[in-house]
């Protein structure tokens, strides 16, 4: 399987979940982390990492080729990599807008294109797009990020229709606010307010999402497809 952006935060939680489950996991990120070094030692025979800027098509293609060369098949793709730049759109830097769109959307589209070709060859596969509740409900100061996340949910629905007849299922998970660096730009007061409004009474943890990825990508799941699973402790209920 491939998990994009698996070196830290939510992505690292997803990688960890699948390594624990005994899967072969390849991940890429712009830079290494101590977790990556540890996994390389601990799971040398079934973990692969490459430094990749997902907005660079050549680097992404080389990464997918490396995974295919090592393991021949790619049965699962988790599109987790993403960046955010907070601030209201009226004041946004054009380069920041490009950065977020190029990585979150164009990078994800490119790797998905490459991996679905491998899945079509075998007529099976599971794809999970990690979107966000801000793509559903919106959030002041995260317009560009939330636009890319809503786009991923659209991608999920179209790909599910496009590939369903070939045994490939595609779903989104829309996490709420997690206790990771992806709670970008939210200060303590905002996080406290989110917790107060969340029926579960806490922020999300990567493991909350990793469990859903395992469930959706289980080979036995060939019937839940084209859906957005919201995991936010009830915040948007």
């Amino acid at each position: 399987m491939i998990v994009t952006g698996g070196s830290r935060g939510l992505g690292a939680g997803i990688v960890e979940g699948h390594l624990d489950a005994g899967d072969r996991v390849a991940t890429c990120a712009r830079s290494r982390t101590p977790e990556v070094d540890r996994w390389e030692k601990e799971y040398a025979d079934r973990f692969l990492f490459q430094e990749v800027d997902l907005s660079n098509r050549d680097q992404t293609t080389a990464f997918v080729n490396a995974v295919v060369e090592r393991w021949e098949t790619i049965e699962v793709l988790v599109n987790n990599a993403g960046v955010a730049r907070d601030g209201i759109l009226a004041m946004a830097d054009d380069d920041d807008i490009d950065l977020v769109i190029d990585l979150n959307l164009k990078g994800t589209l490119h790797i998905t294109k490459l991996v679905t070709r491998r899945m079509l060859a075998r007529r099976r596969g599971h794809i999970v797009n990690i979107s966000s509740i801000v793509g559903l409900s919106g959030y002041r100061g995260l317009s560009v990020y939330s636009a890319t996340k809503a786009a991923l949910d659209g991608l999920t629905r179209s790909m599910a229709r496009e590939l369903g007849s070939r045994g490939i299922v595609v779903n989104s998970i829309a996490p709420g606010y997690l206790r990771t660096e992806m709670s970008h730009g939210l200060d303590e007061a905002q996080l406290d307010q989110i917790v107060r409004r969340t029926p579960a009474g806490r922020l999300g943890e990567p493991a909350d999402i990793a469990r859903i990825v395992l469930f959706l990508t289980d080979p036995a799941n060939d019937y839940i497809t084209g859906q957005v699973i919201v995991a936010d402790g009830g915040l948007t209920a």
């Binding site: 070709r117 491998r118 496009e162």
Partner: peptide, 13 residues
């Protein structure tokens, strides 16, 4: 179009 994609992948492989 999906069958064309499959043939394309099989040839590429």
């Amino acid at each position: 179009s999906l069958e064309a994609a499959e043939l394309s992948v099989m040839l590429e492989d």
